[in-house]
Amino acid sequence: MKINLGVEICGVKFKNPIIAASGTYGFGREYNEFYPISILGGISTKGTTLKPRLGNPTPRIAETPSGILNAVGLQNPGVEHFIEYDLPFLKESGTNIIANVAGSTLADYEEIAERLNGLVDMIELNISCPNVKEGGVAFGIKPESVQNVTEKVKARLTKTPLMVKLSPNVASISDNAKAAENGGADCISLINTLTGMAIDLERRKPILANVTGGMSGPAVKPIALRMVWEACKAVKIPVIGLGGISNYRDVLEFMLVGASAVQVGTANFSNPLVIPEILEGLENYMIKNGIDDIRDIVGKINI
């Protein structure tokens, strides 16, 4: 039986629906030591800003039941370093490159979008990072603001499709999904992390130096799944699902509620080989269940 894992999202062909999630995978070099990253459908790169950022003080991570909190704070080498040093490596790897970009001001977002226009396969707009004081999630909470930043960035992207990454820390995920669509997003991805906190009881202090952080991992999966389902009902553009995906079954669940593709993030920390294992699991599942095209699963939930 010949199996198709390929999907097409706003004109970009992916060899399979598995994308490495931003912030968990660097620019691909480290995991390329475990397996060739060419097997990925795509890679969403570490959130990149115009200028280099040092990020937050440590500790930047805390483990919580079936999850983690992180407060890295967008440490990155800046867009010029990305273009010069990381982009050639990623191009060579042969996977789709989704550049995740962030900024402190609207002008930052516009400028970085213009700089990367035509250089990558897709831009993922990060308006949902909970770990930086300025920008980030500030643009991603109110629907009007989501629409506004999406419009401004879209206007600069004459060659590259735009994916808008939504925050779950909002009043209505459907409203924000629609706002991104109305702003001209070619597709959306969700969920970014949920804001959380962890305490060291003995020292009576927060574990994270940043006090709060973004929660991810299997613990958030039911929330993510519900939000992806709601977003899929709210918009006509493709939806990329993420949040706690750690095996092939999770992937299929997100696709059943309507996701065209998924991102795998925190699971890479637990198991560096999780992505190749997911791909193998998907193929085996499809063979066993007589499904020859992964696209036939999308949105096929029975309610």
């Binding site: 968990t24 570490k46 440590t58 930047r60 805390a62 983690i68 992180n70 920390f269």
Partner: peptide
């Protein structure tokens, strides 16, 4: 020593200035 995430250099959690 530092609290780590991935342990392989990808996540930028265990950094030092």
């Amino acid at each position: 020593e530092e609290r780590m995430g991935c342990g392989v250099g990808a996540c930028l959690v265990c950094v030092c200035k």
